[in-house]
Design a protein around this nucleic acid. Structure first.
Lengths: 345, 345
DNA sequence: TTTGTTTGCTAAATCGTTTTAGTAGATTTG
DNA sequence: CAAATCTACTAAAACGATTTAGCAAACAAA
């Protein structure tokens, strides 16, 4: 029941000196502030002896820095985001920052609520996967000089730091890869979301198809229904109606899941002849049957870039002085699901 | 660049009243403290007008409550933990708490470092998946009156709140299920960790085997090597050497992953005749070929129990007055990988 | 009329730091 | 030898809230 936390004041009293002196010593300003070596050592020794740990809350109140970062994503339990969280966590803790996570479920109301919750001096920086309609809130954050980095997508005509991958190039290359492997009727299954990253993925697919003079087959699942687990039904129907398809490209991971499930229920053998590529990798895709070719986002690189940029922003007096739009390249992990034809032939 | 945060003092000055009054009103103590209705409303209106948001840091310093909980797990990017994080997050935010997460990688040094980091008044409560050697630190936390709940495993002879599942019963039942489905040479692949939850899983398996007069086949992969991705080799070797096996029970999820990979590399067809059960479910197991039977921890129930208990602890004056060891039952998700024989026969 | 109670409000302490603006005394400089 | 500089240290304000203790004025009870 005893919560005897040692404070700087206790130390000062015990040693019969002022709190100022203790504070100076503990902050390594002894030399600068002309505290004698003897006293400095005495304070240091005593602080160690009583296991003094500064009260971060008090420090925060005084300095205005909380040493806390917010990592706001769509859903922290999503493979991509949780893996990324793990990488960011390591770097952040190493640099003396803690990380608070939250999931906005891509909903504006949730996003706004959460940002509002953290805005009041609470946190030192924001890493945000923005929901579609929060451009003005992001602008406000920047206006108020909070370090902000957008992740995975950003807003057109809003000056804001961001780390994204080149979605268009990624799907272009992946589609080309399918074509090179003799798949000629490739479907692209996506949502009807008008968010930048989804649009770009679609563009990449379409330009590859166009370039090869093929026919494009696009299924846009209504975003709202995709989240209710209705995707499976849409996909089943689509596949049934398009008998000529020989490959499917899923634009995002939960659609892949729904798709695989649909295939399994409809016709388990179909999957072995069908070409499949998915956006976003998962550990289990490399042990699936067939192993599934995936557009893999470079998690390590994204995490490193994010934190490197964030640490620079945190040092900045005026965050508007740094404005980086970092674009990384995804990697196509080629596996069985996109190479069966060439193997056979 | 303007960070015009409105403080209680600003409001007081603007309205020409004292900060005390403003504080009372804003904390809903107007009635109790005899603040007139008129003034109360005036303050309320003005606070809303200037969009006053209390500075949580200052509040924390004064009240000693940070409204932050720590969720410390082995690895936040692990399926089980990230799903659980998502559930806990929702409840916590709903109750006005934020969640800081961290991964201890099941290492004592990391655990100790992290706990130490958070101990100094920083956080209001701890949910911890403890690494093996931190019993005394947990005891210390409790001694110092911090709310603590252990998750997934606990320490013998340490009075501490915990939420775990009945591992022994779960593996017992699952093993019995295999036996009932005509698998008679069942291997149990686990690590050599002496942590409670792993021990119990092994006991469950062994008692089921014993009860049915079968032969037990146990592979204990050295814990250290299991983390270096060596598991696959151990499993391959084990399978090669034990030709009579007709089923495998993986004691934890990363072993399953290694196992499936091993099977795939060794003999892709083998997996279709082999019985398989895994501890800890994953979304993709229900679309694997074959779909994989899994011992599934009741995520929702665990999350709810955790937070319900935590909220009670947070209200407590002396945390030692509550001591609950909650044990939940896992659910066996029966799928193809454990029922192929009975289907055939 | 005096005493006691209620109403309406506020001054000041406090939480644990950091930081500004000193103050003596010793030493150096012109 | 007076003025300037340096050394070693400290008092007190500040960060933004909460909370204790208390002060008048109004009202009620005796």
């Amino acid at each position: 029941m005893k919560k005897k936390t040692v404070s700087i004041k206790n130390i000062a009293e015990d040693l019969n000196i002022s709190v100022t002196t203790v504070s100076f010593v503990l902050n390594g300003k002894a030399k600068e502030k002309h505290i004698s070596k003897i006293l400095t050592q005495k304070v240091l020794d005593y602080a160690k002896k009583v296991n003094y740990k500064p009260n971060q809350i008090a420090q925060s109140l005084r300095t205005g820095k909380s040493k806390i970062l917010v990592f706001m994503v769509e859903d922290i339990s999503n493979y991509f985001f949780s893996k990324l969280a793990r990488i960011i966590e390591d770097i952040a803790y190493d640099k003396g920052y803690k990380v608070i996570f939250c999931s906005n479920e891509n909903q504006d109301t949730k996003s706004l609520e959460l940002i509002d919750l953290f805005k009041n001096r609470q946190v030192d920086g924001f890493i945000i996967v923005p929901s579609p309609g929060i451009k003005s809130m992001i602008a406000e954050l920047i206006e108020e000089n909070h370090p902000v980095i957008l992740l995975d997508r950003y807003f057109s005509d809003l000056e804001c730091n961001s780390v994204v991958i080149d979605n268009q190039e990624a799907t272009f290359d992946a589609t080309k890869h399918l074509i090179a492997n003799k798949y000629l009727n490739i479907a692209f299954i996506t949502t009807d979301s008008d968010q930048m990253q989804m649009q770009n993925r679609l563009f990449g697919y379409e330009s590859a198809i166009l370039e090869s003079n093929l026919k494009s087959h696009v299924l846009k699942i209504p975003y709202r229904e995709a989240n209710d687990g209705k995707s499976k039904d849409f996909i089943k129907k689509f596949i049934d109606e398009s008998k000529e398809l020989d490959a499917v490209f899923f634009a995002t991971n939960y659609l892949t899941q729904a798709g695989l499930e649909a295939f399994k229920e409809n016709n388990p053998e179909f999957i072995h002849s069908l070409g499949i590529i998915t956006f976003d990798d998962n550990e289990l895709f490399k042990i699936y049957s067939p192993t599934i070719t995936a557009v893999s986002q470079p998690l390590e690189a994204i995490g490193n870039k994010l934190m490197e940029l964030m640490l620079r922003l945190l040092k900045q007096k005026d965050v508007k002085e740094i404005s980086e739009k970092i674009v990384l390249n995804a990697e196509l992990k080629v596996r069985e699901s996109s190479t069966k034809r060439s193997v056979k032939s």
